[in-house]
Measured scan of single mutants.
Amino acid sequence: IQLFSRPDFLGDHFSFEDDQAALPASFRPQSCRVHGGSWILFDETNFEGDQHILSEGEFPTLTAMGCLASTVLGSLQK
């Protein structure tokens, strides 16, 4: 999965292949690309809070990911 700090796959980005119990504190994903398989994104660290399940594809905004525009993602799980 690739996470981007701005909508439309712009800004800083991080790529992950494994579960992340905590995303970098200063990084707030605003768009993402899922390459193969599914990922669960969580509103809180340690895989807690609301879950957003994404299958392979491109998600140019938080709302395209099924999140509110104000959502701050905290962790993710493959």
Rank of each mutant, 00 (worst) to 15 (best):
P7H: 02
S15T: 15
L62V: 08
S38R: 11
Q2Y: 06
S26Q: 12
D43K: 08
S55A: 12
S38N: 09
A64P: 05
P60F: 00
F16W: 05
E48D: 09
Q30V: 04
S55L: 09
S70A: 08
S15H: 10
E58K: 06
R33A: 03
S15Q: 13
L3M: 10
V34Q: 03
S15Y: 13
G11V: 03
Q30C: 07
E56W: 05
P60H: 01
R33D: 01
W39A: 00
D18T: 13
G37H: 05
A69P: 14
N46G: 11
D12G: 06
D19T: 08
C67M: 11
S15R: 11
I53N: 10
N46C: 07
C67G: 05
Q51H: 12
L68S: 15
T63I: 11
L62Y: 07
S38C: 12
C67A: 08
E56D: 09
Q30D: 03
G37C: 09
D19H: 06
H13C: 15
S31T: 08
I40E: 08
L68E: 15
E58R: 07
G11K: 07
S55N: 14
L10Q: 14
A64M: 06
K78Q: 07
L10G: 12
L62D: 05
H35Q: 11
I1L: 05
D12R: 11
S5G: 09
E17C: 12
M65I: 09
D8N: 14
A22N: 15
R6T: 00
L3C: 00
Q20Y: 06
S70V: 07
A21R: 13
P29V: 14
H35G: 08
G66W: 01
G37M: 05
T71E: 07
T45C: 12
P24Y: 04
E17A: 11
D8H: 14
Q51S: 15
D19K: 02
P60N: 03
F14H: 10
I53K: 08
G49N: 04
C32I: 10
D19P: 01
I53M: 13
L10I: 10
D50M: 11
D12S: 10
G66D: 06
H52M: 06
T71I: 05
E17D: 14
E44P: 07
N46T: 03
F59L: 03
L68Q: 14
G36Y: 09
R33K: 15
L54T: 03
F42D: 02
P60M: 08
L73R: 07
G36F: 07
E58I: 05
Q20R: 07
C67W: 11
E48M: 14
R28G: 02
A22Y: 10
H13E: 14
F27V: 01
V72M: 12
L73A: 09
Q2G: 00
Q2V: 12
N46H: 10
E44H: 10
F27L: 07
F47P: 00
T61N: 15
V72Q: 15
G66M: 01
L10A: 13
L41C: 01
T61Q: 06
T63A: 11
S70D: 15
P29I: 13
Q2H: 14
T45M: 14
A69E: 15
W39V: 00
G49L: 05
F47G: 03
E56R: 10
F14G: 04
Q2T: 15
Q77G: 07
F42W: 10
P24R: 06
A64C: 02
A64Y: 00
D50Q: 14
D19M: 02
D18C: 10
T71L: 02
N46D: 11
T61S: 14
E17S: 14
L23P: 01
G11H: 04
S5N: 11
E44S: 13
F9P: 01
S70I: 05
Q30E: 08
F47V: 02
I53G: 06
E44Y: 09
H35A: 11
G74C: 13
G74Q: 13
F42I: 04
I40S: 05
R6A: 12
D8G: 12
F9Q: 04
G49Y: 00
L3I: 06
S5E: 11
T45W: 08
K78L: 11
F27W: 06
L54C: 05
S38I: 10
D43R: 09
D50S: 13
G36M: 09
F4T: 01
A69I: 00
F59I: 02
L10T: 13
H35T: 13
D8Y: 11
F27I: 06
D12I: 11
S26D: 14
D12C: 10
C32W: 01
F4P: 01
L54F: 04
G74V: 08
I53D: 09
F47L: 05
F47A: 01
L23I: 07
S75A: 03
G57E: 01
P29H: 06
L54D: 00
Q30P: 03
G49Q: 04
T63C: 11
S5V: 02
Q20K: 07
I1A: 02
V34Y: 00
S26M: 11
D8C: 09
I1S: 03
L23T: 05
F4R: 03
G37K: 00
S38W: 08
T71N: 08
H52V: 13
A21F: 08
F47W: 10
G66N: 07
A69L: 08
L76E: 03
L76D: 04
F42C: 06
A25M: 12
R6V: 01
Q77P: 01
D18L: 05
A21N: 10
G66Y: 02
L23N: 05
F4S: 06
A22V: 14
G57K: 01
F27M: 03
H52Y: 15
Q2R: 07
Q20H: 05
D8L: 09
S70C: 07
R28D: 05
F9T: 01
L54E: 04
G57D: 06
E58C: 08
V34E: 01
I40P: 02
L3F: 15
W39D: 02
Q20P: 03
T63K: 15
A21E: 13
E56M: 09
H35W: 12
S55V: 10
Q20F: 05
I1H: 01
H35V: 15
S26W: 13
K78I: 11
F4I: 03
S38M: 12
G74T: 07
T71M: 06
D50W: 06
G49P: 01
G74A: 11
H35D: 06
S70R: 09
I1W: 03
T63M: 13
P24F: 02
L76M: 08
H35N: 12
Q51Y: 12
F4H: 02
G49C: 05
S38Q: 15
F59G: 02
A21H: 12
T71G: 11
